[in-house]
């Protein structure tokens, strides 16, 4: 119903490509004097329907007279946009989890577990409600900052994306309406058909949320890879082309998966916070379980994320090779080394958490002896993964080393080796996971030896295939080498899906050595969850900066020049400090939100206790 309403509102704005062509054809026949121009990306002709980009001078950027670096408008926009994106990312990820967990609860046969899942989904929405309003406030702040600090730029962008921006605002109405019905109707729609209706609302909430994000993504991707305009930036009458620019879809995919890792990390951090603050074993057990589920979701999304990132980078190279080189082998290359360290931190903290999680189960001892080998492989891969390749050198250093690349060391730190390394890290994490799942079970299927042999053989083949391709990549030209990532990925994904399937089949009918003792886990493991969440926050700040700064002195790549006094690229050290400040600010904010949640729940618990302690009147109806 709401969808139909939105669709009917949106239809006049979003002509489908065929209708748009007919409309432009009709327009050209009626008025032959319309000037035609060529689309910078699609290379099609279209009627000029907008103004060219303005020619700006340094004085056209009104800034506050604040001490440096706050005198630079971009620092203000950067920080506000970063905070808005953090919270926005969180409120988009939580409904995805709710949708999945609620469905799992609906499909679970055991009524106790079904209720447990359903309550968890309900709790997650409650956590996100505060974050939802914070996101909206930060969005308002960002909008006012754009209007006041970059008036000419914003005028241009909003004239181009006029219908998109209106639909964006209308979708907010639809999303918040759905969210409130979803949250406040939870108990009323708890049974039978109404419960399925409620689950449908969860799907609808995600449709609105995803479309919102995709519309906002189109503004950022347009700035990187413009389409639908001519060389002077004049709109060519087809908003569909502006929306479907070259990097829109890769960015959509990468951000949806990234949101899920980020949201899972925040929920895991919330659970860790509650675990550490828990007063009794029952609470500990609950929050330990919640932290595990959140971590499971985060890591489940973390495994495909590098592949989506690789695709995004391939598309960047495909759009403008120079942009790709600036990112990976030029001005911003060392930021990618920092990225490698942070990704390594994610995989280490995940493995550490899983190793610690084995303590919940009796019978895990037989697998703990493998931890040191898994750790060794992961560490070796991590070292290859973070080796730098492009050095920034003075002429004297260049001479001493014998050119831009040292004859021997110059072979290290190239993408071929790193692809092999990251696939190794993903596979060792999968092995940790398979062992963790088996920890409290004694396998009883007859083909146990064959099953284990198949698993070992599959991982061995995948790892050797992966390392061989990483070495082979050194001997072939770059354009062929890029294609090698496909068999490497296929190997890794095979171990993930086939390995999980064999493992699950082997655990059928197995004897339990005891239930999982939730809550019996080291305090250190909870700090690993914090490390996971903070590393990911840092990673988002880092990669967001890289994505924006690759435009160098362009507002809109090769169309709209940035002529502000601060159109230079920051030093890596300065940029890293701004990122870290943003991470700190966000976590202080998040802890405040957690603390707020604590206040309301304490009140509810106190009320319930008072109610329970109330003396019952003799002969009363109660």
């Amino acid at each position: 119903m709401v969808t139909m309403l939105i669709m009917s509102l949106a239809m006049p704005f979003f002509l489908t490509p065929v209708m748009a062509q007919e409309a432009t054809k009709a327009a050209t026949e009626a008025a032959p004097k319309v000037e035609m121009a060529k689309d910078v990306y699609f290379k099609t002709e279209g009627p000029v329907s907008g103004n060219p980009v303005p020619e700006l001078k340094a004085a056209d950027y009104p800034s506050y007279n604040l001490p440096y670096p706050l005198s630079e408008n971009r620092i203000l926009i950067w920080s506000i946009a970063q905070q808005h994106l953090y919270f926005g990312s969180f409120v988009l990820a939580v409904p995805i989890f709710c949708m999945i967990i609620e469905l799992v609860g609906l499909l679970t046969k055991d009524p106790v577990m079904a209720k447990k899942y359903d309550d968890l989904a309900h709790l997650l929405v409650k956590i996100s409600l505060t974050a939802y309003s914070v996101t909206a406030i930060l969005g308002g702040l960002l909008l006012f900052s754009f209007i006041t600090l970059y008036p000419d730029f914003f005028k241009y962008i909003s004239s181009l994306f006029r219908p998109v921006m209106h639909i964006y605002a209308l979708l907010f109405l639809a999303e918040s309406g759905t969210l409130y019905i979803y949250y406040y109707g939870w108990d009323r729609m708890a049974h039978g058909f109404a419960k399925w209706m409620h689950a449908c609302l969860g799907v609808l909430l995600n449709v609105f949320g995803s479309v919102l994000m995709m519309l906002a993504n189109s503004w950022a991707s347009f700035m990187m890879s413009p389409a639908g305009v001519d060389e002077q930036g004049r709109f060519l009458g087809n908003i569909w082309n502006v929306l479907h620019n070259a990097l829109w879809n890769p960015l959509n995919v990468h951000r949806i998966i990234g949101n899920m890792v980020f949201g899972g990390g925040i929920v895991a951090a919330y659970a860790a916070y509650k675990f550490l603050a828990a007063k009794n074993m029952e609470e500990k057990a609950y929050y330990d379980w919640m932290g595990y589920i959140a971590m499971f979701m985060a890591v489940g999304s973390l495994i495909p994320l590098p592949f989506a990132g690789y695709w995004l980078m391939r598309e960047v190279y495909g759009f403008r090779q120079q942009m790709g080189i600036t990112l990976m082998g030029g001005l911003l290359a060392w930021l990618f080394i920092i990225q490698a360290v942070l990704i390594g931190a994610l995989f280490f903290s995940t493995n550490y958490y899983l190793f610690n999680g084995m303590e919940r189960m009796r019978g895990a001892e037989k697998y703990q002896k493998y931890i040191k080998y898994i750790l060794f492989l992961t560490t070796a891969a991590f070292i290859v993964w973070l080796t730098p390749h492009t050095l920034v050198m003075r002429p004297a250093e260049l001479k001493a080393i014998g050119g831009q690349q040292h004859p021997i060391i110059g072979n290290f730190g190239v993408m071929s080796a790193k692809n092999g390394a990251v696939n190794t890290m993903i596979m060792t994490t999968i092995i940790s996971f398979l062992l963790y799942q088996r920890s409290n079970k004694i396998i009883t299927v007859k083909w146990e030896a064959w099953g284990n042999a198949a698993l070992v053989a599959m991982f061995a083949v995948a790892l050797v295939n992966n390392w061989w391709l990483a070495i082979y990549g050194y001997f072939i030209p770059a354009n062929v080498r890029v294609g090698l990532s496909v068999p490497q990925v296929m190997g890794t994904l095979t171990t993930l899906f086939v390995g999980s399937a064999i493992n699950i089949a082997m655990m059928k009918g197995s004897k339990l050595t005891g239930p999982i003792e939730w809550g019996k886990i080291s305090v250190r493991s909870q700090y690993a969850l914090f490390a996971l969440a903070v590393s990911f926050t840092w990673l988002m700040a880092l990669m967001g900066y890289i994505r924006s700064s690759v435009r160098l002195f362009w507002h809109v790549m090769e169309v709209f020049r940035d002529t502000s006094p601060w159109a230079f690229t920051h030093t890596i050290g300065f940029a890293a400090n701004v990122m870290s400040m943003n991470v700190m600010a966000f976590w202080l904010f998040v802890l405040f939100v957690f603390w707020l949640g604590e206040l309301t729940s304490k009140h509810a618990v106190a009320e319930a206790r008072k109610e329970a302690a109330r003396p019952v009147m003799a002969g009363g109806s109660e």
């Binding site: 969808t3 609808l204 479309v211 995709m214």
Partner: peptide, 26 residues
């Protein structure tokens, strides 16, 4: 007919999912 009525919830859910996927196919 009774079978459809009994499973109206899951059927509705699947329809909503299919329509959503069609919508993204945006």
């Amino acid at each position: 007919m009774d079978k459809i009525r009994q499973n109206a919830g899951p059927i509705l859910y699947i329809i909503v999912c299919i329509v959503s996927i069609w919508f993204f196919y945006f």
